[in-house]
C-alpha cells in the first residue's frame, strides 16, 4: 500500500477566517490523506519550516486577506533556500482572476477558489502527486 499523501494546510498573516481551511482539512482526511494544520496567523518562514520538516507532498495556503502577491513569492524563495522545490504548492481562498494567472506563472500548481467542490480538491491533489512521482 502506498503511503498516504501528506498535506500541510496553512493560514498566513492577519487573516482569521479558518472555516474554509478546516472544511478542506476534514475533506482531505476523509479522502485518506494525512493533514497537518498550521493554526492561524503564521509567517511564511514558520510555514515553510514546518512543511520542510514534515516533508509534505502538498503545501496548501489559504488566504482570504488579499496578500497573495506578497506571500507566495516569499514562499517560493524560502522553498528554494530549503531545498524543497519539489513540494506542490496550492493556493486557496478568495482572489482576483488576474492574480490567479500571476500565481500560476510563479509556480503555484493550482488555485482553488471559494466555489471549488470538495471532490475536485481531492482529485486535483491526487493527480498532482501522481504526476510528480515517487521522491
Amino acid at each position: 500500500m502506498a503511503a498516504p499523501i501528506r498535506v500541510l494546510l496553512a493560514k498566513i498573516g492577519l487573516d482569521g477566517h479558518d472555516r474554509g481551511v478546516k472544511v478542506v482539512a476534514r475533506t482531505l482526511r476523509d479522502a485518506g490523506m494525512d493533514v497537518i494544520y498550521s493554526g492561524l496567523h503564521r509567517t511564511p518562514e514558520e510555514v515553510v519550516s514546518a512543511a520542510v520538516q514534515e516533508d509534505v507532498d502538498v503545501l496548501g495556503v489559504s488566504l482570504l486577506s488579499g496578500v497573495q502577491m506578497t506571500v507566495f513569492p516569499k514562499i517560493f524563495k524560502l522553498l528554494e533556500e530549503n531545498r524543497a522545490k519539489d513540494m506542490i504548492i496550492i493556493a486557496g481562498g478568495v482572489m482576483p482572476d488576474e492574480d490567479v494567472e500571476e500565481l500560476k506563472k510563479m509556480g503555484v500548481a493550482e488555485v482553488m477558489l471559494q466555489d471549488t467542490p470538495p471532490q475536485k480538491i481531492v482529485d486535483t491533489l491526487r493527480e498532482l502527486v501522481e504526476a510528480r512521482g515517487v521522491r
Binding site: R26, R29, V35, S38, E54
Partner: peptide
C-alpha cells in the same frame, strides 16, 4: 478513511 488530522504542531 485511513486519513488523519495531525494537530500537535499548532
Amino acid at each position: 478513511s485511513g486519513g488523519s488530522i495531525l494537530g500537535d504542531r499548532i
